[in-house]
Design a protein around this nucleic acid. Structure first.
Length: 276
DNA sequence: AGTTAAACCTGGTTGC
DNA sequence: TGCAACCAGGTTTAAC
């Protein structure tokens, strides 16, 4: 999916209208990754206290009569997107969750159903806590210094591309932006994470931040399914340097971009200018 | 303990 | 035209 920019685009689209909204009903479609874990009818009357994000998860705390009751943890999986609809049409084949509020209906469309909507009593208690437990630092957390990032990479012997996808050293980069940031930093995706020098780690961190920020500005990437809450597609994919461009010329050095498979995922890189 | 594969599910594209 | 094979933004769970 939805990687960090797409989730943040989504969050920004719904935060203002949904803040303080009163839940009227929940509608569930086909099963998502996990069951909701709570009687949907029990949420009626609660108000949305915030629209937060942690990694690629959205967290909507809900309160009843001013007292926190819990919240909904949402993940868009591989093909999910959220829409905020003033007058929702009847749910389509892939509309699997509606949060009906007095400010509109938040609707999850997710053809592959790898997404999730889970009730949790708090973000730091299960099931939310267990799902968020392994997440590394947020990409723009000031506490994520080059030193710390380098130290986190040094703990892993796996290929740096795989380590980025694991989210252990930094959250937010999925397959598109991991490939793009490695290209921007001129680092070969198969390089062992613990072999990356301190200066190169610093460059990679900067590249990740620049790539994610640029993608956010452009509304994310739309390969197929993703749109923002108003139905608009992202524009980043059109200016990707390597992702999805096997056989095409690297914009930096002109060599043909190569596609390889690492950890069951496609990796795109330029053999000409990304060094081990 | 740490790395790698399997699994979840649908649909679009490609190739024979 | 039909059909099989492969591919797609993620991440948990099971298996080496």
């Amino acid at each position: 999916m939805p990687e960090w920019p797409e989730v943040e685009v989504t969050r920004r689209g719904i935060a203002a209208p949904l803040l303080g909204a009163r839940v009227q009903a929940l509608r569930l479609g086909k099963p998502l990754r996990w069951p909701l874990g709570r009687d949907p009818d029990a949420l009626a009357g609660m108000r949305v206290g915030a629209v937060d994000r942690r990694g690629k998860y959205l967290w909507l705390p809900l309160a009843r009569a001013g007292a926190p009751a819990g919240g909904l943890l949402l993940h868009l999986g591989m093909s999910g997107s959220l829409a905020l609809l003033a007058a929702p049409p009847p749910p389509g084949a892939h509309d699997h969750f509606d949060l009906v509020t007095d400010r509109g209906t938040l609707r999850l469309n997710d053809p592959r159903r790898f997404g999730a909507v889970v009730w949790s009593a708090a973000i730091d208690s299960d099931p939310a806590a267990a799902l968020l437990a392994r997440l590394g630092p947020e990409p723009f957390d000031p506490a994520l210094t080059p030193q710390r990032f380098h130290a986190a990479l040094a703990r892993r012997r796996a290929p740096v591309k795989a380590v980025l996808l694991s989210g252990e050293a930094i959250v937010g980069a999925g397959n598109i932006y991991a490939c793009e940031a490695l290209h921007a930093a001129a680092i070969h995706p198969a390089l062992r994470a613990d072999r990356i020098s301190r200066p190169r780690a610093e460059r990679l961190l900067a590249a990740l931040r620049a790539t994610l920020a640029r993608a956010l500005e452009l509304g994310g990437s739309t390969l197929r399914d993703f749109t923002d809450v108003h139905g608009a597609a992202g524009a980043y994919q059109a200016q990707a340097a390597v992702y999805g461009r096997a056989g095409l010329a690297c914009p930096r050095c002109g060599n043909a971009v190569r596609r390889v498979v690492q950890g069951q995922r496609s990796t795109y890189y330029c053999p000409g200018c990304q060094r081990r």
